[in-house]
Nucleic acid binder design. Structure first.
Length: 358
DNA sequence: GCATCCCGCCATCCA
DNA sequence: TGGATGGCGGGATGC
């Protein structure tokens, strides 16, 4: 049988580490797809940054990026230090509705948006990390706090979404979004930085299929088109579909830290299968229940067995992975996918075993 | 050559 | 004071 490129054996790990670097395989979009694949299950409530980083094979820093953007549309919520809850897609429509209302109130729907870029959200709920004093708000010039707040991925992402929701334009370019969302300063350096962040956000939202990259008609200028949460329901299954159906990349190659440089995260610690059990059962969110799955619809996998295996020992981790794979495997009716997942799990097991040895 | 965006440094926050 | 968080921009990769 021809070797499938997405299967990563333990022998391959070192080889892959030495292989030529491919930026595409490390993109935030791919990371988000994997993130969703792993966590979008009924039996996942809470997760930790370390755990996510270990599972996804990336540095903590990247998880912060993803989580901040996902938090802006309430796919996840911060519950505490190093602790997030997975809400799934259930809250997206409500979140978008709220963002639209806020956006309209804040003038995102008017043509003056470009000059109203200081009208960033001051949603009470969201003030946690950036609470402004009245004095701060009175300052006409942008205070340090204002600037930090305006620059946060969370807020930038919300404002970006508001632009789509409130604007009459079908297409939005990152340049125009950066200009609109940038405060007074038209400093090219700030613009560049803002555009960089918008690329990050756009990648995540594209990966969530909320927006789609396209071009301004008649030009080569890239722009983004809003698909909305409707698209999530209509074709959202692709987020969970067979990796070889997914846009460009394949499952096995998406383990994103195969570089020779080790990340700082110590995989041997903090690894807890499926995170932490939520205290308040009332808050349990049937994240995937309202979601319309495609042909590979996962059924509600029981986590009972896994929870008790939440030990941090290495063998525990391997068992956890096996439990995870067995929880998934029988529930996919597509044989190709089933095979793929099996190989994928095996690759993970070998990879962690290799890591343990080292 | 420009667009894209990963990567990790380091400032800030917080317990 | 050390760990958690995340802004930021250099510079590598892709087209």
């Amino acid at each position: 049988m021809e070797k499938m490129p997405w299967i990563v054996s333990s022998q391959d790990v070192d080889a892959l580490a030495l292989q030529s670097y491919s930026r595409k395989e490390k993109s935030l979009g791919v990371l988000v797809s994997n993130f969703v694949r792993i966590y979008n299950r009924d039996d996942v409530d809470l997760f930790g940054i370390d755990e996510a980083a270990a599972k996804l094979g990336v540095e903590r820093r990247r998880i912060y990026d993803v989580v901040n953007i996902l938090e802006s549309i309430e796919v996840v919520s911060r519950k505490g230090k190093n602790l997030y809850s997975w809400n799934g897609f259930l809250h997206i429509p409500r979140s978008l509705h709220q963002l639209k209302e806020e956006g309209l109130r804040e003038g995102f729907g008017t043509s003056s948006i470009c000059s109203n870029s200081d009208k960033v959200s001051h949603d009470d709920e969201s003030e946690e990390s950036f609470s402004l004093t009245p004095d701060d708000q009175d300052n006409s010039s942008l205070s340090k706090l204002d600037h930090k707040k305006e620059s946060s991925l969370w807020l930038l992402s919300q404002n970006f979404v508001k632009m789509f929701l409130c604007s009459h334009d079908d297409l939005i370019t990152l340049d125009s979004a950066a200009k609109a969302l940038l405060s007074d300063s038209q400093d090219p350096m700030h613009m560049r930085t803002k555009v960089r962040r918008l690329y990050d956000i756009a990648n995540v939202l594209s990966s969530m299929e909320l927006i789609e990259k396209t071009h301004i008609p008649g030009t080569r200028k890239p722009a983004y088109k809003w698909l909305g949460s409707k698209s999530l329901t209509e074709k959202g299954s692709s987020l969970f579909n067979s990796p070889n159906e997914s846009k460009k990349r394949v499952f096995g190659t998406e383990i994103t830290n195969l570089s020779t440089k080790r990340n700082k995260t110590d995989c041997s610690s903090n690894y807890v299968q499926n995170g932490y059990k939520k205290h308040d059962e009332e808050e349990k969110k049937p994240a995937a229940k309202s979601y319309v799955f495609g042909p590979f619809s996962p059924t509600a996998a029981s986590k009972k067995n896994n929870i008790n295996n939440a030990g941090t020992s290495n063998s525990g981790r391997l068992q956890d992975l096996e439990a995870l794979s067995s929880a998934y495997k029988p529930q996919y009716c597509n044989q190709d996918v089933t095979g793929l997942l099996g190989h994928y799990t095996e690759a993970w097991n070998k990879w962690f075993a290799e890591l343990d040895r080292k």
